[in-house]
Nucleic acid binder design. Sequence first.
DNA 1: TGGATTTGACCAGC
DNA 2: GCTGGTCAAATCCA
Length: 306
Amino acid sequence: MDCCDRECAVEEVAQVYERIKIQQPFLLRHCSSLPPSTATQQLAQTHSEALRALNVALSVMKQQHQQSSAAPATPSIKAEPPSHGGAAPCYPEAITTSAARRGKRRRTTMEEAAAGKTSSWAGLTTVPYEDGYEWRKYGEKKINGTSFTRSYFRCTYKDDTGCLATKHVQQKDSSDPPVFQVTYNNKHTCNICTTTTAASKSSDREIINPHPPNNAAVMMNNVVKSKNHRCWCCLLLSRPPLPPLLSIERCRRRANMISHHFLSAVCSCPAVPQQIIMASIRHRPQVHASPATPAMDIIIPQEEQT
DNA sequence: TGGATTTGACCAGC
DNA sequence: GCTGGTCAAATCCA
């Protein structure tokens, strides 16, 4: 496939993606107004899967396009399509690197990753901080031959559960939105997602039901009726590993941190004020020098701030 | 005040 | 000796 064909394909997929994305809030609203049934369940589920698949396809296609237009000497990295949470990468089934040992780790090169000689896994994404897990930053370093610093993260629950999952995020370019290379080491063993409500801080951690309802209508009703107003937007867009349920307050804060792509993908979420969605569409995402900074600035309307 | 982030120092692989 | 990954004290922030 030549360059023009590829661009046409990307454009076509992008158009379909935008069309489905626009339809999703209306569909979900419609489903929520109907009594739960297999048909509405399947419709909502299929719609969500289609949206996610298109998002994945777009990410991969854009990535391939960038790689093909790069210098030939540039080594290709092992990049698999994400399985959840928009463009966030997923984990391989087997991660058994010796680097999992505590202490200093053997460096892994791009070549090794491409050759599959290392069990760590790298992928490109525009939403490096939205992969459904909670991460705590523990370091940042300027890497030779790169324009941007690399940020190091470990699982927030390392101390609680001994989870050894780590990742590092390296911004690759200043494109719009910026592309990040995310490298994961060690699989999550914590198996917990946490939530923080507006009324309580992180002390009230809870284990999320591993089998949440797939029915969009049920989930919508739960959001509307439940006292703590949990956000389910991530659940709707994802498959295991499950992202955390978020309080509306937390989701609003989080909306300030996520990229244009992801935000527009969750535009059906009732917890994220429509004004934020519109603001994210009106204002082009800003490019920041450090990947640790938000991918864009969104002004939360005054009445929405708490 | 406690949790999260920053940042310089340290350590081990290459 | 250089470099990437981690540690941990200092700092920030809600």
